[in-house]
Amino acid sequence: MSFLELKNVSKSYGGTPVLSDVNLSIIEGEFVAIVGYSGQGKTTLMSLIAGLIKPDSGTLTLSGQPITGPGPDRGLVFQNYSLLPWLTVGENIDLAVRSVFPEKTEAERAAHIDNYIAMVKLSHAKDRLPRQLSGGMRQRVSVARTLAIQPRILLLDEPLSALDALTRANLQDEINDICQSDKKTVVLITNSVDEALLLADRIIPLTLGPGATLAAPITVDLPRPRDRKALNQEPEFKRLRAQITDQLLGFSAGRKSSLSRKLVLPDILPEDLEAPRVSRPPRRLSEEKNETIVSA
């Protein structure tokens, strides 16, 4: 039975359809990656699942219950970290834990928080403010805060897009470890095919908007744990990587307007700006060619 289910979901902003007729079904413990271009409605899709916005039509259900608003059963990690700048790492996480688990005692809460800070390897930075952390560390805090409310499903909205390649690779490995050890249900939104192949059980490409929808899912049958370097040798990895990349690039090739316009590239050569200005017609490549022919 599917755990999270979207049926014929459509959403438009001011008349422009963003998503139309989106169908998605995720089983418990599955890691699904949605891959698509920027500005095509990936974040709108995430906000719908999180309950931050309502669909124009269609239904969203989480284990059979309709999604009507945001709730702690779905944990969302944003691309921009969204930490409160005046609270320390510990306090930022405490804020979430306090509101989701009001019954916990002070000591239980502290232990709970420390556990999750340790999980993302930030124990040494517990009392620092967000501005004293690097981008990668801030995103770790954001991940810890979301995990600490123990959501039933984890929603990752391009969590690593703002990070440099090396930091991103490290965080990918950490997310992979955490999700695999807990067997969490995860929806990851990303624009990186490599990231999706490294982490996901299924990859679903998002077509181009307006009125984007989900294309047919692709099952990623690569053995776990997946090692970035070993994957490079795997024929199945290469095949999937080529197939998905090609499919995504194919979407945009279809979008390009076939505007045929007569273009003229005049045959003129740039002038030497270090030499004094001259007043003569521009030099032309065609003339230069003629000269060489004559001299030869």
Partner: peptide, 17 residues
Amino acid sequence: QVYYTASKLERTQIAEY
């Protein structure tokens, strides 16, 4: 700057191209 000897039309054509 670089094509200051060329006509305005040719310069526009380069940029548009």
